[in-house]
Structure formats: C-alpha cells, structure tokens
Computed example of a mutant assay.
Amino acid sequence: MDPAQDHPDNPFGMDEDCRNCPNLCDARTSVVHGYGDVGADFLFVGGRPGSGADRTGIPFTGDDAGCRLQRILGDLELSNSPPDADRPELDGAYCTYLTRCRHPDRDPTDEEITTCDPYLTADLRMINPEIIVPVGTLALRGVAVEHTTRNPEELDADDLHATTIRGRGFELVPMRALEDQTDEETEAFVEYFAESVLGRDYRQTKGRSGAHD
C-alpha cells in the first residue's frame, strides 16, 4: 500500500450515505466505494457489489465470488491476506465498482449506472492505473463506453476472458464474472495476467503486444 495512505477503505472520502438513487437506498446495506492501494497499477472493477460486499462494505469480500477474486489477487502477489479476509491487505491493486449500491433482486438500471459514473471516474483519475480489469460483462461494457473505441454492446467478458483490449490511455484485461468462473478459467486468468502483464514492462508496451483494437 502507498506509504502516504492512511487507510485502504474509501480513501478518497466519497459520500458513504449517497442517496442519489432513491430506489436503492432502502434496498442496500452499504454504499460500497473503492478499496485498496491508491498507488495501484491495477484497478479491478465489478458491475455492482455482491451480497458479501453489501454486508462488509468492502469490494469483493464476504462471499464465494469475493473469495475467488481475493485468491486471484493473492496468487498474483497483489494481496497479503487470506481469500476470506473482510479487509484484505492489497499491494498494487485497487478494487471498485461501476455502481456502488446493491439491489438484491436486480441488476442496476442504465440510469443508476449513469448516476454513479462520477464515482468511478473519480477513482480512475485519482488512481490513474496502468491496467483496468473489468470483472463481468456489465463492468466491461460500462468501462468500454469511455475508455475504448469498441462498441460496448459487442463486448462479452465470457469471450474476452484473459485477453487484452487496447483502451484510451489504459489496457483492459477482462475477466469473466466471478460467480460463473470455473477453477480452470480462474487458473487461465492468473497465468495470462502473470505472463502477459506482470511478465512484461507494461508501462513501455501499453497498447502494443497482443492487444486488440
């Protein structure tokens, strides 16, 4: 974690009682803002908080899907905590969401995604990562709108799992939704990320080696 950083949870002091989406205020338990290392090179972004994150208030924690991502981060040496930690110690990674509140019965609406976009935009500007990992198709399409030249509706995280997409100022390395991943797909992502991202000087080769337009 950045030595100048006081704490990893909501380090930029975003509104923890946000009421911009009235239909979510009574449905949620927590407003789940970003968490992790503010000096991170790698930003992992999901579509919406899972049931565990809604309970803990920490992205990608508290349930099986969260444990899967935390295990991935540990395998990549981006976490120093066990996969089931509610407050993982991240080093070089920052976790956040396209939308910050969970409705237990449905995905976020387009209006809710638009309303929440300033939070993600602020995360990206403050972190300024080298690599964005959209977790699931909802996150991939949401990030692609502003940060790639691709048609978002044509992008599918299942098809693009463990590949690289050239972005505007970033590279995107999509991941299939955690709850849908097999152990083999998780292993494939770890191997790809270790070899194709951590295994090269991505700061110098950004937008080239193996990237899709």
Rank of each mutant, 00 (worst) to 15 (best):
E111M: 07
V45S: 04
V38Y: 01
Y119D: 11
I72L: 09
D107C: 12
T205Q: 13
T121Q: 15
R176T: 04
G13A: 01
E184K: 11
V38M: 12
C101E: 11
F170P: 01
Q181L: 15
S51A: 14
G210F: 01
H103W: 01
T163K: 12
L78K: 00
P118E: 11
C116H: 06
G210Y: 00
R125Q: 13
T96M: 04
M126I: 05
T163W: 01
D6F: 00
F193D: 09
S209D: 11
T109F: 02
C116L: 07
G46V: 07
P82K: 12
P88S: 06
D159M: 13
E153C: 13
V143Q: 06
L155C: 10
P11K: 01
T163V: 09
D41N: 15
E154G: 09
R106L: 11
R166G: 14
C67W: 14
A53K: 03
G199M: 04
A194W: 02
Y119S: 09
Q5E: 08
C21I: 07
V45A: 15
V45H: 04
A157L: 08
G207L: 06
R19D: 13
P152G: 03
V133N: 13
S209K: 12
R141W: 08
Y192W: 03
E153M: 12
V45G: 05
D117E: 13
D15I: 09
G167R: 02
P8K: 03
D41A: 12
T205V: 15
N80G: 10
D117R: 15
F193S: 08
G169Y: 08
L160V: 05
G52F: 05
M14L: 15
T61C: 08
F12C: 08
C21E: 14
P8N: 03
R102Y: 06
E111Q: 11
I72R: 07
E111R: 10
G66M: 13
D158L: 05
D91S: 14
L124Y: 01
T99Q: 14
A177N: 12
D84A: 08
G50A: 15
G74M: 12
F42Q: 06
P104L: 09
R208D: 13
T115G: 08
H161G: 14
A65N: 04
A211S: 14
L178W: 00
Y94E: 03
D26G: 07
M1W: 00
A194E: 14
L90Q: 04
I113N: 03
E89W: 07
R166P: 01
P8Q: 15
I131W: 00
R166S: 10
E153I: 03
F189V: 09
L76I: 06
Q5F: 03
M126E: 15
S51F: 00
D183N: 13
L155K: 06
G34K: 02
L155T: 06
A211Y: 06
G34H: 02
L78V: 01
G34D: 02
R106A: 15
L78H: 00
A93E: 11
V197M: 12
V45W: 00
P8I: 02
A40I: 05
P108C: 11
F193K: 05
F170T: 02
R19I: 09
K206G: 10
R106K: 08
L138H: 03
Y97S: 09
I72K: 03
